[in-house]
């Protein structure tokens, strides 16, 4: 069965409204893109949308109560909320070095969660 999905291209201020048509997961057509970048973006958003996750985790004994953390690479979009929820249970001990791995291989994605600043 054919299905359409709508996306807004984020690659330039034109913000093209993209319409992707697929059948059983196979992309048939992308309409509305002003350029090839938009075509590619719609496919990625349909086939494997990924996002960088950033949040905070609690710190014991630090100069601040929270440590900002970020995924070292984008992870599947569908896992973002679960990743943040998982990290919300975590408490790390100060001091923390910039880039220190805080949670390796989050949700089996192969992507590490790292400290996004040093915290003495």
């Amino acid at each position: 069965m054919k299905k359409t999905h709508n996306y807004t291209c984020i690659n330039c201020p034109l913000s093209c409204a993209l319409e992707l048509t697929e059948e059983n997961g196979e992309v048939l057509e992308v309409k509305g893109a002003d350029c090839k970048v938009g075509q590619k973006y719609a496919r990625e958003e349909f086939e494997n949308p990924r996002r960088v996750v950033s949040t905070t985790v609690r710190v014991e004994g630090g100069a601040l109560p929270l440590l900002p953390v970020v995924s070292a690479a984008p992870i599947p979009k569908a896992l973002v909320r679960d990743a943040v929820r998982m990290l919300s249970k975590l408490t790390v001990n100060a001091p923390v070095a910039d880039g220190q791995v805080i949670y390796p291989d989050i949700l089996g994605t192969g992507v590490d969660i790292i400290a996004s600043r040093p915290l003495p």
């Binding site: 609690r58 109560p65 929270l66 929820r85 919300s88």
Partner: peptide
């Protein structure tokens, strides 16, 4: 406090 609404323990 942060994390409280996610069920994380309060500070």
């Amino acid at each position: 406090v942060a994390k409280e609404f996610l069920g994380g323990a309060a500070r």
